[in-house]
Design a protein around this nucleic acid. Structure first.
Lengths: 146, 146
DNA sequence: TCTAAATAGATGTATATACACGTATCCCAT
DNA sequence: ATGGGATACGTGTATATACATCTATTTAGA
């Protein structure tokens, strides 16, 4: 048995890589949600967007981006898709630099219909991953840098 | 004080959404790694790819996809980028249906140079998130469905 | 042996993500 | 009042991701 090279021993640390592990988890979880939400014509990211708007009310793009911890420019692209599907509407704010995002009636209906599906997938994943997983995931998400 | 509508109380559960929280964490963590790895001309996903190839040796696309828990078709696109940058090479296998991915000398050099940067970012994030966060993240990633 | 099912990938299409940079608007200090 | 910095957002470009579907090759069964 030949001992691994020192370099390879160090490299083995990368199995704990926060980036690899967080992305891996996000991919698998997203696939699970997208697969089921598909029947409602939306993706998990759009469900998140709609739920946030319904809970928080109208928000500027910047404020929305901060809540989601997503780059503002990313949100702009995502909103264009959601707007095309008539799930949200974007209008000018009092401050002419701002643009305000509003959930549409169609967006609200879609959200209501999709909610039981979301709940089902969430419950199935908790069943599969263990109930601590949710709290772990929440802790990690909260601990993560802005 | 008006009590929230029953519907809104239910909707508030979505703050615990595994998809939202996992994606949010992955975004923030990825931004942190990408920002630093940039100087080496690679992204976090490519670092992961190179480290895995260096540790496991040559792998077929399918085997690699399984390790990474990424769709095969996604990996095909990612490999095209890495191959363009001469970080990996893809060749036919004995089974003519298979294609085998190999890390190139340039890929190996890049990996070696980027490793201290990876370590630095990983350590900084652990410092910021707390050491339990890493174990939580690992548990979540392992618990996640295939 | 020959063909049908299974396997391994690639491609078309669409969304998600972020950085560098550009534009419009606001606001404050002079 | 005005000019310059700060703020809010969009665009160009590139990578990451996945599903549906297609092609090529292997393999198992009649």
């Amino acid at each position: 048995m030949i001992a691994p090279l020192d370099e390879d021993r160090q490299l083995a640390e990368t199995a704990n890589c926060l980036c690899f592990n967080s992305r891996r988890a996000a991919r698998a979880i997203t696939r699970a949600f997208d697969r089921e939400l598909r029947r409602h014509g939306i993706r998990a990211t759009q469900f998140t967007l709609l739920a946030l708007l319904e809970l928080k009310g109208d928000l500027s793009i910047g404020a929305l981006a901060e809540y989601l911890a997503v780059e503002r420019t990313t949100l702009t692209r995502n909103l264009a898709v959601a707007e095309e599907q008539e799930l949200v509407r974007v209008r000018a704010g009092d401050d002419a630099r701002e643009r305000i995002v509003t959930i549409t009636p169609k967006g609200r209906t879609t959200l209501r219909k999709a909610f039981p599906t979301w709940r089902k997938v969430q419950a199935a994943l908790i069943e599969e991953m263990g109930s601590q997983a949710v709290e772990s995931m929440r802790k990690v998400a909260r601990a993560v840098p802005a």
